[in-house]
């Protein structure tokens, strides 16, 4: 089941000469943190372009800089230098509220710890992004949330609270929430980190499907065993991009 209102692969702007424009561009992204011992450089000038339909794995050991890079991409943390262009928009030039609105509409985020609202039913968790920044219509948003839960095989639990379902199920709901506003970009930070291998496989297949449907899916993980699911693999070590398996399609 296609869960976007349209597939971005068809929709995406094509540059003169037939080349597609990247959905996400990283230019020399640097991030340093001040510490007692002096500045610590977590990202040392990372550049990469990402396109619709890619399922990108950002791989690296703990402390390599994966989460920092994800935070730069989602705009929840400020870059020290360089630029992140998402769909042509410089995320870091936006104010906090503008960034929140932009992110809510264009970028779905999935966390390792799911981060569902504990007091909201699953269906309302999925409706929340629509409520905050979508064109909210009570019944339409409800129907869409149910459809998203259905696509994650979670509709029968729609009125349950997050605490009433398993971790794997919570992650599926979190993915449904990330898709609520039909964003072209999905960013996931270790989404399988708390799941067993069988459940992880289910989640990975969902992301695979989303990429096939035209989304750009970026996933940070330290688990090299799931690398086979990615259409493109970036490897980071000590804040440096050490390997990029390259664009697929293009």
């Amino acid at each position: 089941m296609a869960i976007g209102c349209c597939t971005l692969a068809e929709d995406q702007q094509v540059l003169p000469g037939g080349e597609r424009q990247p959905l996400l561009e990283l230019h020399e992204v640097v991030k340093t943190y001040p510490t007692a011992q002096g500045d610590f450089m977590a990202l040392k000038g990372i550049s990469a372009d990402f396109y619709a339909g890619e399922f990108v794995g950002i791989l690296g050991k703990s402390g390599a800089g994966k989460t920092t890079l994800i935070n730069m991409i989602t705009g929840v943390d400020r870059i020290t230098s360089g630029e992140v262009l998402a769909m042509g928009v410089s995320m870091h030039a936006l104010g906090e509220d503008q960034a929140a609105r932009w992110r809510g509409k264009n970028m779905g985020i999935v966390f390792q710890t799911f981060r569902l609202m504990p007091t909201l039913s699953l269906v309302n968790n999925v409706r929340l992004p629509v409520d905050f920044c979508g064109a909210y219509q009570p019944r339409a948003s409800f129907a869409r949330a149910l459809a998203l839960l259905e696509s994650m095989e979670m509709s029968e639990h729609a009125l349950k609270l997050p605490s009433q379902i398993s971790g794997g199920q919570q992650q599926r709901v979190a993915i449904a929430r990330a898709l609520a506003n039909d964003p072209p970009i999905i960013v996931a930070d270790e989404p399988t980190g708390r799941l067993d291998s069988a459940t992880s496989a289910i989640i990975m297949r969902i992301f695979e499907r989303l990429a096939r449907e035209g989304k750009l899916v970026l996933m940070a993980t330290h688990d090299f065993s799931i690398a086979q699911y990615f259409s493109r693999r970036l490897e980071i070590a000590d804040g440096v991009l050490v390997a990029d398996s390259g664009r697929v399609g293009g």
Binding site: T119, L120, L128, P138, A158, L159
Partner: peptide
């Protein structure tokens, strides 16, 4: 069969506020 639509009228943000009221 649960009538899902019956719950559609309340915006999630207010549902959250109310749930927080009675949550503890």
């Amino acid at each position: 069969m649960i009538n899902w639509q019956a719950f559609a009228w309340l915006r999630p943000r207010w549902a959250k506020a109310l749930a927080d009221v009675v949550g503890n």
